[in-house]
Design a protein around this nucleic acid. Sequence first.
DNA 1: CCAGAATGCGAGTGACCACTCGTGTTTGTC
DNA 2: GACAAACACGAGTGGTCACTCGCATTCTGG
Lengths: 219, 219
Amino acid sequence: MSDTTKKGDGTTKEQQPRRRQARGERRIAQLLHAAARVFCTTGYTAASTNAIAREAGVSPGTLYQFFPNKEAIAIELGDRLMHEMREAYGEALAPVDPATPLEEAIGSAVDWFMAFNTDHPVFFALMHGPDIPGRMAEAHEQLHTTVVGRIEALLASLMPGAAPADVTRTAHVCLGIYKAGLELVLAHEGAERAAYIRETKDVLIRYLEPLVGDRLGRA
Amino acid sequence: MSDTTKKGDGTTKEQQPRRRQARGERRIAQLLHAAARVFCTTGYTAASTNAIAREAGVSPGTLYQFFPNKEAIAIELGDRLMHEMREAYGEALAPVDPATPLEEAIGSAVDWFMAFNTDHPVFFALMHGPDIPGRMAEAHEQLHTTVVGRIEALLASLMPGAAPADVTRTAHVCLGIYKAGLELVLAHEGAERAAYIRETKDVLIRYLEPLVGDRLGRA
DNA sequence: CCAGAATGCGAGTGACCACTCGTGTTTGTC
DNA sequence: GACAAACACGAGTGGTCACTCGCATTCTGG
């Protein structure tokens, strides 16, 4: 009972972020980089903290100087990725210029997300595994609903008369198509990778084209 | 050295399948059923053999009376599923009647596979996890290439002039679309599930329609 | 230059898990 | 009914892994 993180005195200082030296910040970045590599190759659960420490060239004790536990490493990694994503997020989905042709809108959005994910394959590894820690699952869920919401907003202008449930379903299908395409894209390189990006766009365009067709037909 | 499974005498009897009683066969079925439930909820790696035994209502020792190790449980489960699948496999993809309209062909194939996977959710759980044991990964790979090969054969008649690489890529995209649809289908129930099956078919039809259009245009 | 904090180490600790073993019970066969 | 084999049990065993601890080293403010 009353086992909050409050300290004894009146001030609720639940965190004293332990003043870091430049060396510490460097180690953290180094450890996160190593963790990304290990998570990519073995997945989250199979990745051992000792392996991460070894990959970073430090001792297990050093790792725990900067992260309270294994989950915190994934959390911090996910948070940094999320932050980096949001920095340029609006560029990908926000501008819903109705004048933009569907092909172009889908093309740029897919290009942007594909580039982000191929640059940071950890993102997919952390989000996709069935072995994500509890806190990570929340973040994943949150991102998922956010993205679906954005897609819904885009679709709403294309499907003016549709029931909300239909719009939601269509948004989920679009995201599913993208994920399937991403998996294929990540599994290939060079020209083949580019071809799969092209295919992903085509699938989305052909799936959504009839909706636009209706709108244009009435316009 | 020479640590083969040969016995001392000349005969290389590396297996004496241990005569089973009816009770044993029942226990095996019971254990596989329990394993399916546990694998579905926790995934393969996170599933403990003790949990499987508990779910089946037997002791850990009893489990190891019938399976040499944890992987063997997944293997046997996968093998039985594969066998059951192949029993009715031809019905789903084999009959490539060129007279069948694309919609109908895709519709029946998707219906069949969706029904199989919703009846046996373990199949998806075992095939999809990043934590599959080595032997299981082989089986997965094999099934994957088999299915892709079948789809390629179907597509070949639709894309007569296309390069083999293009046909292969299209086949991979089709399978990816199906998997994405399956994930959405398994995440919903009742009417929503049916609606997602419908969407999956639509995505595939609209993706492949231009190919058929070419053929029909020339016919 | 010197306290004290931050950093770094790696052998250890406790928990968990796949798997085993000794022993007792049930079943099929003659 | 008697014997052997199959079945069943559950406490144990060895290994792995997340995480800790005591101690050495490096930085920072005064």
